[in-house]
Design a protein around this nucleic acid. Sequence first.
DNA 1: GCGGAGATACAGACTGTCTATAGGAGATGA
DNA 2: TCATCTCCTATAGACAGTCTGTATCTCCGC
Lengths: 109, 109
Amino acid sequence: MGRSQTELLQGTLDMLILKVLAIGEMHGLGISRRIAQVTRGTFEVKPGSLFPALHRMEEEGWLRSSWGESESNRRARYYQLTRKGRRQLQSEAKRWERISLAIERALGA
Amino acid sequence: MGRSQTELLQGTLDMLILKVLAIGEMHGLGISRRIAQVTRGTFEVKPGSLFPALHRMEEEGWLRSSWGESESNRRARYYQLTRKGRRQLQSEAKRWERISLAIERALGA
DNA sequence: GCGGAGATACAGACTGTCTATAGGAGATGA
DNA sequence: TCATCTCCTATAGACAGTCTGTATCTCCGC
């Protein structure tokens, strides 16, 4: 029946993207690969999740983007963190700490 | 503008409910209070989130319920973990560990 | 020049949480 | 006994964000 299985917890995708871009600008599929790499394959972000997120985040003013050329000489859109995006990353990381601590407490009790 | 702010990460509500019920059977509002207590107020599960979740979980066969009387002599529906629910809790806790580890790794990098 | 792989993009479905509201039933005080 | 408060369960509808699936374009190797 193909029920869509949400593996990624709601809200964490943005945080992962922001974190990856904090290192430096990167194009869409590059971001996706990097996320898979740092999470050792736990999160494999599909294009249909990634691009809507990137556009939303650009609208929010957390990202800026421009056309460039990929490592393999293909036209690619590069995304770059804004100052606002950096602040957002800070705040999302704090939120994650708070939530994850609360759940650990609940599970440990 | 009253945008609905999802504080609870998708999928974690079930886990918290299962964990609370692993201690012993409990009625709806009791579960809600207990969650607020063990997470020190981080998660305040409102009725409109709680009851749909309980019904869904009962349909899945993770819970069993029956009418009883609350501590204050009011009619209350008591929810109880089934064996299937206990297995589900195990599996959700494992999933949480995996995911939270992956995110910690990503944030730490 | 043709097919495959790299890369971006959009439409539609689905899941689960949130807000808001309703209503019964016991306790309490006048 | 009546009003009212609190406890407890319940449903409807809105909404956000992720997933599946598909389309499009471009570069590269053969």
